[in-house]
Each structure stands twice: as C-alpha cells, then as structure tokens.
Amino acid sequence: MCLLIEEPLLDAYFYEGDLLLAAVNAPASAWALLPELGARLRAVITTLPEVMVAGLPRGAAEDLACFVARLESPTPSDCCLRCWSRPRACRTPSPAPT
C-alpha cells in the first residue's frame, strides 16, 4: 500500500494504474477495516492530474470517483446505488433524475 500511496499509477503487471484500480474496486467491506488507508488513498486520488486519469482504461475515472464518493459519504447519495455495493457497476450510467 505504501508504494501505491507514493506512486498511484504504478504499473503492477498489466498497465499503468492497474494496482490502483484493483485497490479501489476492492469491496467496501475491505476498506471499512482500513479507514486510515482508505482516507490516504482518497487524498492521493483527488490530487491526480486529470491528464493522468484520462490515460487510464475506459471506466477508470468513474471507478476512482466512486471510490472517493463512497469514502466521503456514509450514504450512497454521492454515488450511484449500484456502485455503492459493487464498484465496477459504476461504469453504467445512472438514469437521469425525473
């Protein structure tokens, strides 16, 4: 985790940022056990330059935003409900409010 905090777009094996995306897509229950690390990772994600996030695979920006929203809010109001329980589902846009 220290490496990820220091270099969030670390290329662990497949592509730049793969470790970061694996971490943010871990179940919320896992992050509930590590609130301090989650907060540190959230801080790192929020400071990533937009150009770096744009270079990640399709859907990565949404995964990152969902992770940040999940940790910032005790309720799913800041993140789609599907994402709240399964981060990968956040790639599907929520229906527009009526």
Rank of each mutant, 00 (worst) to 15 (best):
A54E: 05
E62R: 14
L4W: 11
A89E: 08
N25C: 15
L9Q: 06
E72N: 12
P93T: 03
R86S: 12
W84T: 04
A30D: 13
R88Q: 14
P87A: 06
A89Y: 15
R91A: 04
N25E: 14
P57Q: 01
P8H: 00
W31H: 05
V51F: 07
E50F: 03
A26M: 09
S77I: 15
E36Y: 10
R40A: 12
P74E: 03
A96F: 06
A60H: 01
A54S: 02
D11A: 12
V68L: 01
L20R: 06
A96C: 05
D11Y: 14
V68H: 00
P87N: 03
L34S: 08
N25A: 13
E7Q: 07
L37H: 04
R40H: 10
A30I: 11
G17K: 07
R91N: 02
V51Q: 14
G55T: 01
R82K: 12
L71W: 09
R70C: 02
C66E: 00
L21C: 05
A69N: 00
E50R: 09
Y13G: 09
F67T: 01
T92W: 15
T47I: 10
R82Y: 15
L64W: 06
E72A: 10
C79E: 09
E16C: 11
L81E: 13
R70M: 05
A61H: 02
G55M: 03
L21M: 10
L81M: 12
N25G: 10
S94K: 10
A26S: 11
S73N: 13
L19D: 07
P87D: 05
I45V: 11
L64S: 01
D63R: 09
E36Q: 10
A28S: 12
E6W: 07
G55E: 00
T75S: 11
A61T: 02
S94Q: 12
M52E: 15
D18K: 07
E62M: 08
W31Y: 13
R82Q: 15
G59V: 03
M52D: 15
S77A: 13
